[in-house]
Design a protein around this nucleic acid. Structure first.
Length: 271
DNA sequence: ATGCGGACCTGTTAGC
DNA sequence: TGCTAACAGGTCCGCA
């Protein structure tokens, strides 16, 4: 579920409320996430102070004095700050209880999320070490994308989804960014010009920034750290809008199976 | 090396 | 109205 804007929305909502807080205990009601929650974490975490909440790709990094807690929300996860005494719902699998009496509560119906601990620099962790650049930073450029895709036949939509090429973009924002750049999602990445990559990089950045400003996209169940939904779904131009009019030319938006996931595009605006 | 499909798991929705 | 199948925001892994 959550792509970069939703994870960033969560980070911003949480950061001030947990920074400087001491972790008093970890409550694991169901540790069967993508990887089982390590039992040692219950002994490891108490007493540590959360100094900052950072983000890399779709990972949240809770920085402490002696390591980082890495949290991924998977497809259906959300993280909220609630009173520790509040009774948990069916899918509220883990609580990180804080000295303030509040806790960070992870809800994750599909259990594709993860909670991991690392004492090395987070960038060196297996899951993070091979990630591509952050799309909102300058390393992600038209020149970079152009260079990465020479000779590649993969669909550009799949390139944008590949976290090893660029981090944090999921299916919603890949589709939206391609619409903004006028590029067909199935177009082979190696057959896109420098000039069009300039448009694409600009569109990726604008799309992500707008989504962050709107608090992310809530299609089904995404909720921010205070339980409120995002509003970017109201601004989606093609994603989820099969057969609805294109906002630019009013031709019907189409959906096509690309790999195992849907690609939405306007047949008039995107080539 | 590249790229594709399968796997993980469960709730919601579309269709018969 | 009820059952079933398809689908969903992610991403690692193994195979061709």
């Amino acid at each position: 579920m959550p792509e970069l804007p939703e994870v960033e929305t969560t980070r911003r909502g949480i950061a001030e409320r947990v920074a400087g807080q001491i972790i008093t205990r970890l409550v694991v009601r169901d540790g069967r996430l993508r990887w089982p929650v390590a039992p040692e974490l219950k002994d490891e975490l108490p007493g540590k102070t959360i100094h900052a909440v950072n983000r890399r790709a779709k990972y949240l990094l809770f920085e402490t004095e002696s390591g980082n807690l890495i949290v991924h929300l998977g497809m259906s996860g959300s993280l909220r700050v609630v009173p520790a005494a509040q009774s948990p719902g069916k899918f509220d699998h883990v609580d990180i209880v804080l000295a303030s009496g509040e806790c960070l509560r992870l809800r994750d119906p599909r259990r594709f999320g993860a909670i991991l601990w690392t004492t090395e620099a987070p960038g060196r962790h297996m899951l993070l070490s091979n990630l591509g650049p952050e799309p909102l930073q300058s390393e992600f450029s038209a020149e970079y994308l152009y260079g990465m895709t020479r000779g590649r036949r993969r669909a550009i939509r799949d390139v944008l989804l590949d976290g090893h090429i660029v981090a944090g973009i999921g299916n919603i924002y890949a589709n939206e960014a391609l619409f903004g750049a006028g590029i067909h999602p199935a177009r082979p990445a190696g057959r896109i010009s420098r000039a069009r990559y300039v448009l694409l990089v600009r569109s990726v950045r604008a799309t992500l920034k707008r989504a962050i400003r709107a608090g992310g996209t809530t299609l089904r169940d995404f909720q921010g750290s205070d339980g409120s939904p995002g509003y970017f779904q109201l601004r989606l131009k093609v994603y989820g809008r099969d057969r609805k009019p294109c906002p630019a030319c009013s031709r019907a938006v189409r959906v096509q199976r690309l790999g195992s996931r849907s690609a939405f595009y306007c047949p008039g605006c995107q080539r």
